[in-house]
Computed example of a mutant assay.
Amino acid sequence: MTDTTPYPLTNPPTDLSAISQIDSSILFPSFTTTDAWVLGNLLRSRLSTYASPSVISITLANTTPLFYTAVSPGITPDNTFWVARKSATVLRFGCSTWYMHNKFQGDEKAFAEKYSLQERAKEYAIHGGGFPVRVKGVEGVVAVIVVSGLKQQQDHQVIVQTCRDFLDGVGEGEEKRKED
């Protein structure tokens, strides 16, 4: 019998400094195709406890796909569109889409005006679920993790919690966060 209880998620903070601290504290020792595979499958396992169909995408900063899967039947082409938009936001601004959502209080018009996006505004999303992958000793974002399908705060938080658990499993978890 399968456990149908959703993977428990804490609520992510909405304070920008707290979100920024989380974004920068999740630091991988390296990020290989094997890491992406293991992390993607861990995310898939956790997301499969939810009834909502969702998508997981992990790509390098140069957009090379490392992991992509649908979780549960019922995804639509719209999920793929959200993945692309969330990924573009992480790559352009170097932070999670949850940070950008809270920075603009969800106001997409203010976001588009601030960055003079005009017609290109549709290429970006300021909804939780896009997260930067950073590697110790490497400047900038090396990859992007995107989850699309749950409520945006859940999309964000499942990534954060899963990355932390993954890093705990490779010896870079709680001890590393205490050092930072």
Rank of each mutant, 00 (worst) to 15 (best):
Q154F: 07
I145D: 01
V90W: 01
Q161L: 08
P13I: 05
T33Y: 08
K109F: 07
G140M: 08
G74N: 10
H156T: 02
P13S: 13
I159Q: 04
Q153C: 11
A18P: 02
H127L: 13
D107A: 08
A110H: 02
Q105C: 09
S72A: 13
K178P: 00
A110S: 10
V170H: 04
V71S: 03
R134Y: 03
S20D: 15
P73F: 09
F166I: 06
K103Q: 13
Q161H: 07
Q118T: 09
I56D: 01
E139N: 10
N62I: 10
P77F: 09
K178W: 03
D107W: 05
I26Y: 06
S48A: 15
R177D: 11
N102W: 08
I159Y: 00
E119K: 15
K178M: 11
T63F: 10
S96G: 15
G130S: 08
G128T: 06
L39D: 02
S25D: 05
L16F: 08
L91W: 06
P29T: 08
R92P: 01
S25C: 05
E174A: 15
S30D: 14
Q161V: 04
V160M: 05
I19T: 04
T14K: 14
P53C: 14
V90P: 04
L91V: 09
T33G: 15
Y50W: 12
V83T: 13
W37H: 13
S52K: 12
G169H: 06
E175D: 12
D107T: 04
T69K: 08
F93Y: 15
V142P: 04
S87E: 15
L43Y: 06
R46T: 11
S30A: 13
A61S: 15
P77G: 14
A70W: 05
A112Y: 00
V170R: 08
P29W: 10
T14D: 06
S48K: 09
L60K: 12
I58N: 03
G169R: 09
R120N: 13
L42F: 03
Y124K: 01
L60R: 13
Q21W: 04
G173A: 12
D180A: 11
V146Q: 00
G128C: 03
N79E: 02
T80V: 14
D3P: 00
K151R: 13
G129K: 11
C95A: 13
T33Q: 14
F111A: 03
R177C: 08
Q118A: 14
G149C: 11
E113W: 02
G94E: 03
G169V: 09
F93V: 01
F28K: 06
R134C: 01
A143R: 03
L43K: 06
V138G: 01
W82Y: 12
A51I: 11
N41K: 08
R44H: 14
W82K: 09
T162P: 11
K178Q: 15
P132S: 05
A51C: 03
S96L: 04
A36E: 05
Y7D: 05
V158Y: 07
T10C: 06
